[in-house]
Design a protein around this nucleic acid. Structure first.
Lengths: 158, 158
DNA sequence: GTAGGTTGCGTGCATATGCACGTATTTCGC
DNA sequence: GCGAAATACGTGCATATGCACGCAACCTAC
């Protein structure tokens, strides 16, 4: 071991096979990075929360419909909705079908969404600037293609 | 805006602008989908856990080095390591620098990793089959390009 | 040598994610 | 009608994610 004053070792991946290129790990890494990018430009709102607001409307819609549109687990949606309900941005109403839980934006929710949309637009523009104006459409095309090929494989719900 | 009689509309995304294509939302959606794909083929191990095992080695390395290599928040790493420690797949040792927390694979951890690597390889191959053999390299190239352009913007740690 | 900045780390808080399981309602087959 | 299948939903559990804050050990300048 070479002597070293203070420091940390940044060498050696440590006795083993180097990790092979994993599509899953890579996409998650990029998702983290991009999420962080957006959120640093959207004060007071997580990206997921904004996404939720953007998919909500004045018209009450059932949770299941929302989860399908967002292609997100129903139970995740239930929990992600909680802070928005607590903030008074979303209200729930009862419909004819007693099983359904209908959710819609409140006036306050619409205001928050409009304000956030501005920030989002800025972030999106800045992201496209950073990644390259002509790069982003290509990236999107590939992401969409991957989504189209990868079937959700719905277990029970959704 | 034409005033429409109640009952004319059946679909309607609910009184508002349809969500614009958001790179962040799209990549998170794909990340969820792909994660689910891998995990359905890796019994008893989350994708993140496998990724961690794959980046660990026999040689003890400090947490901070690991978090840098994984490009992941240090505190997230701390927590993600916990189940692996509990399972006896990872051990921690003390080094010269009392600040550092050195972690390495145990023999059991190596065995688990080797078994998991097999499953991972199958999953990866199947994914490439599903997405298209020639598609995946292109996708990777774009993901890597995006990662290269998007600087982490390290706040304090990491 | 010691004060003060730096570095490595853990915890509390808040959200994100999805599976297994259980519950309530509705619809369907007969 | 009525019992079974289908549908919509919540909760418990386990992990994933990162920021703010605080602590301890280390290093550097003086």
């Amino acid at each position: 071991m070479p002597r070293r004053a203070a420091g940390l070792r940044r060498e050696a991946p440590a006795a083993s096979v180097p990790p092979l290129p994993c599509t899953g790990a890579t996409i998650r890494r990029l998702a983290r990075r991009i999420t962080s990018f957006y959120e640093s430009r959207m004060p007071g709102l997580r990206l997921g929360q904004y996404s939720l607001l953007a998919h909500l409307g004045t018209e009450p819609q059932p949770l299941c419909a929302l989860s399908r549109r967002l292609e997100m687990d129903r139970t995740t949606l239930t929990r992600n909705l909680k802070p928005l309900l607590a903030a008074g941005w979303v209200r729930e109403t009862a419909g004819a079908d007693a099983r359904l839980r209908l959710v819609a934006l409140t006036p306050a929710g619409r205001r928050v969404r409009e304000r956030a949309r501005t920030h989002w637009k800025t972030a999106q523009a800045e992201l496209e600037e950073t990644l390259g104006r002509d790069f982003v459409p290509v990236l999107h095309a590939h992401l969409d293609a991957a989504l189209a090929r990868l079937k959700p494989a719905l277990p029970d719900d959704n």
